[in-house]
Each structure stands twice: as structure tokens, then as C-alpha cells.
Write a protein that binds this DNA or RNA. Structure first.
Lengths: 213, 213
DNA sequence: TCAAATAATGAATAATGAGTCATAATCTAG
DNA sequence: CTAGATTATGACTCATTATTCATTATTTGA
């Protein structure tokens, strides 16, 4: 990826850039895109407003950069969860759920934000970067669905549409995360492990009492 | 609820108000709050911009009124689904899922919109109206959870936290709806009945092949 | 028919906030 | 130390809307 030989100048520039990103991320995530002003971002990052423009060409560019980071992380997580060679389906799903929940606690509203604004963004001219939420989700679901596909072929799960399954599973995970952050006063605090386990268990086994017992 | 004896004047006023609401709803839902201007709403409703202010005190007020309508509908649906005396748990869940999916197709992004902006709204001074998304969801989950509670008492489903179950079930339904509208190019077109059935089936039975067969 | 009352209208106003840029501060190399 | 390069800065510009309100149009009741 990076053939960069690194230089102090550049490292510092990168660091400052990341500082701006962090400030913007935190504000965008908690207040949404439009409710956040560049003034605020600047103040939060401890820079002048003009300085932001030395690092990002526009507010939208900044937003895109943040989305890109978050998308990358989600894709990495999905990839590593689903392609692990030494784990079964249940473990893979658990790893994914656990990772997403952890990630979501750190970046509470990013999914929402990305979705909400995703389609009103002008297309990203920037080279190889992710275009939009739909692209990312398509990749995520595709990765998950392959695991289901294998299970179906081995007749371990019912022969349902694997993409639909991937989407529904992801939906449970995602909505749980969202609700947890948003409605923390309603939802009982539970350990991430327990929650991930619950979701996987419901998805694989259902909630009906096991008739075989 | 309404002891109003109705008068033409008032009926017409109501009708015009509903026309404005419809125009605003359609625009907010497809473009989001900030991307929609009052000018557009007025044009869409075939009124002058100033006229809007004879019916709603501000853009935010208009938004709140729309949210209120949508919240009411969701609550009614949940209530009627969950308290039907002549249906079992599976039927109740199916009815709910079916209703939400139908509603979501008509009002594609309302959930997202409500969530996204919900918390940045100033508190609603208006009498008995719903305050925010959290309140509504709490009621919805509470209604659903009671059904689960009964099933648990009768040992027909596993003894898990009923609120968590309600939330996860709702999460599957809701995310499915959202994805369907948003990523229709990815998701296979299916009948509402089939989808609702699939979700209920996964939730109650899981996707694992039934060992009793 | 006509004078209140009611409703509609869009030009004018005011607020906001993204983006610019001339200036100042800081750094670097010679 | 100093000139030139680089970076930071925030007052300013400017486009965009929400909101107001004086004016016009319509309705109503007598």
C-alpha cells in the first residue's frame, strides 16, 4: 500500500490531518452533517477555520474522508471475520457481530450518518476510494453470504437466499448497535460478548424452545 | 378524540393543511430535512411560500407534525398487531412485519429521517404529542415484548430478555425495509408476504436445519 | 352590493455559515 | 541571522434560505 519513506514534515502533516478528522468525526457523529459548522470543527480541532482548508478542499471532502475511514474498517472486519479458515459459521458470525458492536460503540452514529447523507453526496472523483454506502454494504453482504452459501451446500442451514440472510443478520447486529447507543436509557446494559452471542444464537437457532430436548 | 362538529371552513382548512403536509413529507422523505427548502415545499403544494406560515409556525414545526403522523401510524399498527385476541405469537409477529414493510414502502425513509433529526429537535411544547423517536420506540418494543413475555411464561420460547427480543425482531424488520428501499438494485424483489414470513420464521425457528427431521 | 374578516402572496429582511484571501506567524536552509 | 517557503488565521465575502409583513385577493354575512 504505502511505499512512502516517511519524513518528519509529512508525518506531522498527517498527524494534523488526523486531528482534524477526529474532531470532525466526533462532531458529525454526534450532531449530524448539517448541524455541524466548520467553525465548530476548527475550534474543536484547535485550528483556525482557514487551516481546515489547507487539509481538505471542502466540508464535503472532509465528510467523505471520514466515511472512507469507517468503510475501510468495516470491510476489514468483515473480511477477517468471514475468511478465517479455522472457525465455523457460528464463530464467524460471532466475530463479525462482536466487531461491529465494538466499532459502533466507538463511532455511534456513523452508519446512520453515512446512510442519510450517502446518496446526496456528489460522486467521489478520488481514485480508488469507496463511492458510497451501497457499494460497501454490497461487499459486506457478499462476504457474509458466502459463508451461508457453504452451510447451505453442506445442508447445515435451510436453503434460503444467502444474500437475504446476510442482510437480515447484519440488520439485527446493526440495529442493535444503533439502539444501544441511541436509547441507552431503555436498553439494559449487557456485555458485548453476551449480546453478540444472543444475536448469533437467535439467528441460527431461533427463539423457540428446542423440541429435541 | 374529536368532539368537533365539523364545519366546511374547518374541513377545508384541514384539507389544505394536509396538502402541505403531504408535499413536505414527500420531499423530506426523499431528500432529507436540510436539502428541502420551504420554497420547494410551497411549489410542490401549489401554495405561496408565505401561505405555509399560515398553517405551520416554522419549518421545524412542519417536520414535527409529519413525524407525529408517522409515529401515530406505527403505534396503531403495533397496538393492533400485538393485542389481537384471535392470533398466536407467530401471527402477531407476521402482522407487524407485514404492516411495517408496507408502511415503509410508502414512506421509505421516515425512520431514518426521524432518527437522524429526532434528537436535534427542540422539545415539543405542544400538548399531548409524541416527543421523540425514543418514546415511540419504547412503546413499540414494550407492546411487542409483552407477547414474548407470554410465550416465555408458557415455555414456548427460550427465557430471554423480552425487550431485547422485541428490539432485535424489530431491528430485522426495520433494516430489511430500509435496505429494500435504499438498495433496491441489490436486493431481490420479493413479495411482502414472503419477506415478512421469512423474518418471522428466522426469528422463531432460526436458520439451522431442523434436527427433528 | 359592500365592508369586514380571512387567506394568499412573494418581495424584502435577516441570519447563517461555507469558502476566500491578505496578513501574520513559524519554519528551513544557507 | 535572514530571505524565502510554508502554514495558520479569522475578518470578510457571498450565496443561500428561513421568516416577516405590507399588499392583494377572496370569502362571508348582512
Amino acid at each position: 500500500m504505502s511505499s512512502a519513506p516517511l519524513s518528519r514534515k509529512e508525518r506531522e502533516k498527517l498527524a494534523r490531518q488526523e486531528e482534524i478528522l477526529a474532531a470532525a468525526r466526533s462532531l458529525f457523529l454526534s450532531k449530524g452533517y448539517h448541524e455541524t459548522t466548520l467553525e465548530e470543527i476548527a475550534r474543536h480541532a484547535e485550528f483556525g477555520k482557514g487551516t481546515i482548508y489547507n487539509y481538505f478542499s471542502s466540508k464535503e471532502d472532509l465528510f467523505r474522508a471520514i466515511n472512507h475511514q469507517l468503510f475501510e474498517r468495516l470491510l476489514d472486519l468483515t473480511q477477517s471475520s468471514m475468511t478465517a479458515t479455522d472457525s465455523n459459521c457460528r464463530d464467524k458470525l460471532f466475530h463479525y457481530a462482536h466487531g461491529v458492536i465494538t466499532h459502533a460503540r466507538e463511532n455511534s452514529e456513523w452508519i446512520l450518518m453515512a446512510m442519510q447523507r450517502g446518496h446526496s453526496l456528489k460522486p467521489d472523483e478520488g481514485k480508488q476510494s469507496m463511492k458510497n454506502f451501497a457499494d460497501v454494504m454490497q461487499k459486506v453482504w457478499s462476504l457474509i453470504s458466502r459463508v451461508f452459501q457453504v452451510e447451505i451446500e453442506n445442508q447445515r442451514i435451510r436453503a434460503l437466499d444467502p444474500i437475504a440472510l446476510a442482510m437480515l443478520f447484519d440488520g439485527m447486529v446493526r440495529t442493535y448497535c444503533f439502539n444501544h447507543v441511541k436509547f441507552s436509557h431503555i436498553i439494559k446494559e449487557t456485555e458485548i460478548e453476551q449480546t453478540a452471542e444472543l444475536i448469533v444464537s437467535i439467528f441460527l437457532d431461533g427463539i423457540a424452545v428446542d423440541k429435541t430436548n
